[in-house]
Design a protein around this nucleic acid. Structure first.
Lengths: 345, 345
DNA sequence: CTGAAAGCGCTTACAG
DNA sequence: CTGAAAGCGCTTACAG
């Protein structure tokens, strides 16, 4: 019934056109030294046989696979990842590159991510959500495969990175809360040791310092950027003798969790406690109360990570890019002026 | 300083071990007819040189690339896509396959998705968000590449599909609203012609019919599953002389949009109008009011699409799978009993 | 049990 | 301007 159609090879085209495969190759690759007449013949044969060059075979000899890999060490369901991938996808359109998502076994000691990339002839790779210390990072840098790290502040001969100005972002959040009269400002943080988290915590300290508010260790809780960690973290903060009147979270999902915990206690946001998030995922606007949060240009980060990567691929001497995207504060409904006698020093 | 380490080839291993490349190949591929002694030597050489077989080169001769492609014709930022990809990723772990996301140019008449897949030696592909009529679907079926269509009801020699029982899902939603006393039930639908939408509309009609409620064309509006289409669709419904008291939406995002429009009019959900969504994305629970919606086992669909695809790849005679996942109604806060004299026939 | 040879579908010097 | 040959890194009959 429905016949399976085999793809024609370059030999088929050569035979059809009555020329050599070398000549066909030259036509395909737009070499100038082919007569118009021959070029015509070949093009006709290509059209007739619906020939498409095999990218894989070509890659074997040229060493270029027209494929960039991506390592995502965060659940896809994190809206942050979705927005980033959307940016990646946008930058890839019409670039000629396809995207390969590697099934990496980062916890397997016998597994090497760099080997995986090389065995697939990847032209470059973007990596994100990996801690600076993971061995795969040094292996990657050693391998010489062009790499862009998102949110991991490492560089190498052919490796750059891109991140948001996390530090300023949280600083702005703290300042905003200060200006609203808050002095007991807590922080629901992320995973200790990750560049992203450390920078945000530094911004938190900056903000406190600029406002001359002493740092309290019991106001800072580690987490993992998830809804759950916001929920449990906030529950813990509410147990304190002097609970905070405001909390800055290092992700929007964590902020949602925190708000959930606050409301479960019969309190309201922002009347009783102000909450600010980080990321500005699209849900932040939909949420009630609409979330005050630090905006990251996530889509842009996705786009630029690919653009810079491709630049590195095309030019071996391209200096390893280090790009920092600005953060900005988006004020919505989850933060408000502190009322009453709560203001203390 | 940091030396770039080249990956060893099978020739390097052969030389190091003092055997032929054929023998190395046999060791790699676990052929039995290799003496223990030789096997040892080769394994040592492999370890010494940190050799990994080049998947690409292997693929060129075996015809298998250990790569499955995915065509996603919906924005990544749609939470539905994220959940599906998370399932896909889960099923891929330890399968040996990597995932390639094709930069498809579906609107380019010179572009053939099937050719693209073949030129990349893809072992199989999962496609979703593509209308049944798009030429790429027949091309794919013709090509003989194992394919799983998600939410598109086509099959072929080596092509199956998977979908949610959309029809029953919406039927249940309508029935739920009917039992709450609603009779003026509208539908904010999706893209006409898409299998997903048609099934859901059929379920809407089923529900009406079972309740003996006449179908009103002005209660059914096409959309595109987005927040915006819920917003504008609902605005339109609110203009009617007899606006609906309940509306079933064909996506959660559309439901969010509809609720937004209702509230912007000074009305409340569910007191004034009940709203039910479709998908049960994780935001549905977070939203206020928490959304009553039809649950799809999206993660499972992602998992099964890959499992079935791999089964088709491994066995040329595997019958084209057609799987339908059950839908279920999740009742939350966005639907309520109709009060007062609103009940009419 | 082992290896030489052909071949997967291409590109790239090189000779003519 | 054109094509024969070697080679990219592998696997697979096949001969020994």
């Amino acid at each position: 019934m429905s016949e399976v159609i085999e793809l024609a090879s370059i030999h088929d085209v050569a035979k059809e056109a009555g020329v050599s495969v070398a000549t066909v190759s030259k036509v395909i690759n737009h070499y100038p030294d082919v007569s118009e007449k021959t070029r015509k013949k070949v093009k006709n044969a290509i059209a007739l046989l619906r020939y498409r060059p095999n990218v894989i075979a070509r890659g074997l000899v040229t060493g270029r696979s027209w494929t960039v890999g991506v390592l995502i060490n965060i659940p896809f369901t994190n809206p942050y990842v979705s927005m980033l991938l959307e940016g990646v996808k946008t930058a890839l359109e019409n670039s000629g590159y396809d995207l390969m998502r590697l099934s990496a076994r980062l916890n397997d000691p016998d597994y090497s991510f760099a080997d995986h990339c090389q065995s697939r002839n990847l032209d470059g790779v973007v990596v994100f959500g990996v801690e600076k210390e993971h061995r795969c990072i040094q292996e990657l840098i050693q391998s010489g495969i062009p790499t862009m790290f998102v949110d991991t502040d490492v560089t190498g001969h052919r490796a750059g990175n891109i991140t948001t100005d996390n530090r300023s972002g949280v600083h702005m959040a703290v300042q905003h809360l200060y200006e609203l009269g808050h002095r007991r400002i807590a922080c629901l943080a992320g995973i200790p040791g990750q560049a992203v988290n450390d920078s945000r915590l530094a911004g938190y300290r900056d903000g406190l310092q600029a406002a001359s508010i002493p740092y309290r260790a019991d106001y800072v809780l580690a987490g993992d950027y998830s809804f759950e960690s916001g929920l449990t973290g906030m529950q813990e903060l509410l147990q304190l003798d002097a609970p905070p009147t405001a909390v800055v979270c290092t992700s929007d999902m964590t902020a949602f969790g925190a708000i959930h915990a606050i409301e479960a206690r019969g309190l309201t946001v922002p009347e009783d406690i102000s909450v600010v998030g980080f990321d500005n995922i699209f849900e932040a606007e939909l949420f009630k109360p609409a979330l005050t949060t630090v905006n990251q240009n996530i889509h842009t980060i996705g786009v630029k990570s690919i653009e810079e990567l491709i630049a590195m691929i095309k030019n071996p001497d391209y200096p390893p890019p280090v790009v920092m995207e600005p953060a900005s504060l988006v004020i919505r409904e989850s933060t408000a002026r502190l009322v009453g006698s709560e203001i203390t020093r």
